[in-house]
Each structure stands twice: as C-alpha cells, then as structure tokens.
Amino acid sequence: MNGARYLKHRRHLILLIIILLGANGAFSQTVNPLAADPRAARAGGGIFRAQCASCHGADAKGIDIIDAPDLTLIWTRVEATDQAVFQVIRSGIPGSIMPPHGFPDPEIWMLVSYLRSVAVTGTSKQIVGNSTRGSELFQGNCSLCHRVDGSGGSLGPDLTAITARRTQAALTDSIRNPSANIARRYKPVSLLTDANERVRGAIKSEDAFSIQVMDSNQVLRGFSKSALRELNRDEPSLMPAFSERQLSETDVNDILSFLQSVR
C-alpha cells in the first residue's frame, strides 16, 4: 500500500469509527432512566431479594463465607457510576461466581436504583469545623494508627473518604467509644508467648492452629496457637477512648472536617 492510499484508508477508518461511536452513544443508555422514579428502587428491592440476596445478603451487605462483597459500599468508589454497575449486573464478573444476567434493561435499572437506595450515605452535609486545625489534631492524635491519603499508620482502618461511608454522629461515637463497634480485621487480642512476651494487636486472620496479628508496633506477626501461653480476645479496642477533656466537641468536628476535606 502506498502512502497516499494508506492515508485515504486511514481517513475512512477514522470516519467509520466516529460513526460507530456516535451510533453507540445514541443507542446505549449511560444514565439510569428510572433514577427519578421512587417506585424503581422498591421494585428493584424485590428483584434483589429474589435474585441477588442468596450471595449478597438480604441487606446487600455481603456474605463473608462466600466472599460476596458489601454492595452498600460500592458507591463510595470513584469509578462506581450507574452505568458501570448496570454493566457488572449485565455481564457479570468473568472468573468469579458473579454470573451475567439476562434481565430486561428496565429490571437492571431497577436494581441500580435499589442499590442507590441502600447505599451507605455517610456524611452528606458539610461538617462545620476548622479543617486546618483538624489536620494538626489528626497528626497529633490519630495518624500514628490511621492513614489518610497514603500517609499515617496502619493499626487502625484507613480513614480516607471515611465521611462518605459513615455519618458524623457515628464517627464521633467511634472516637468517644471505640470499643462499642470494632470492625472485622481490627478486633483486639492479647497474647502471651512461650518466651513470656506480651503481645497486643489486631487479629487479621485465624484458623484452628494459628493466629495472624498486627501488633501494637504495627508489625505483622504470626503465632502457632500451641506455642502460646495465653490468648485473650476479651479486650477493649486498641484505640483509646477520647473523652471531651482530651478532645472537645470542637476538636472532633475539626478533625472530621479535615477528613471530609480529603475525601
């Protein structure tokens, strides 16, 4: 093929691609056409309970035993759009147990509406606080164990975008009373090794014979249960409870304002 013919063919090819893309854009749905209809989420709930709940749980929060994920959290991901979720339901996830579904398009959009309706809402309104001061308070009180935007410790959960997943009241409660509700993989444990070393840490994994923890120095350590003198799980959270004297309401709001600013 000579140069002129190549360029001519290339122009034709580009034109064809533009036409095809245009056609595709005209016919494929990129937004949920039922988003404004409150009946869609209700109908989607019925479909969800019949078709999806056996794996994802009746409350859409997932089932650990089969690694089915918590769907109430999917919208906290930047890449989660109505169309992306529609496509996952339609095509499934290759290589996983999530199958493709041949439901009519409106039913899939109803499922998308339902998943929107059960999404963890987090903190939607702007938290009133001084985020600059909150950043300093976070560095002084929290960052040893918690990570935000890639920096900080790992003993506690990563708090990047946490305000998108939890409400201001729930986050305040976790600061005041951290032992009340401890997330999986952060459950505390106290061990006494056969060398008489006392180890406190968070349980990452466990089977009948071994236990895997991150110790309070943020070092991952595995232990054989048969080599432990003590294994005590009845422990308060590794996170200290912050009273009003240690962190005032203003301090807490400043910290939460900072966390909201980096979501």
């Binding site: 019925g46 479909i47 019949a50 709940a53 056996s54 749980g57 009746a58």
Partner: peptide, 23 residues
C-alpha cells in the same frame, strides 16, 4: 428468615424471601 412472595419467573432463582445471617 423473612419470606416474601416470589415472582416465579422462568429461568430465575425463586427463593421467596430473604435470610439475615448473624455472622
């Protein structure tokens, strides 16, 4: 267990309700 009348659609699972498991 929370039963619910199912849609009875051919080729679709038909549990007829939901189950809340305390993991």
């Amino acid at each position: 267990y929370v039963p619910e009348e199912p849609a009875n659609t051919r080729g679709q699972a038909n549990f007829g309700g939901t189950v809340f498991i305390d993991s």
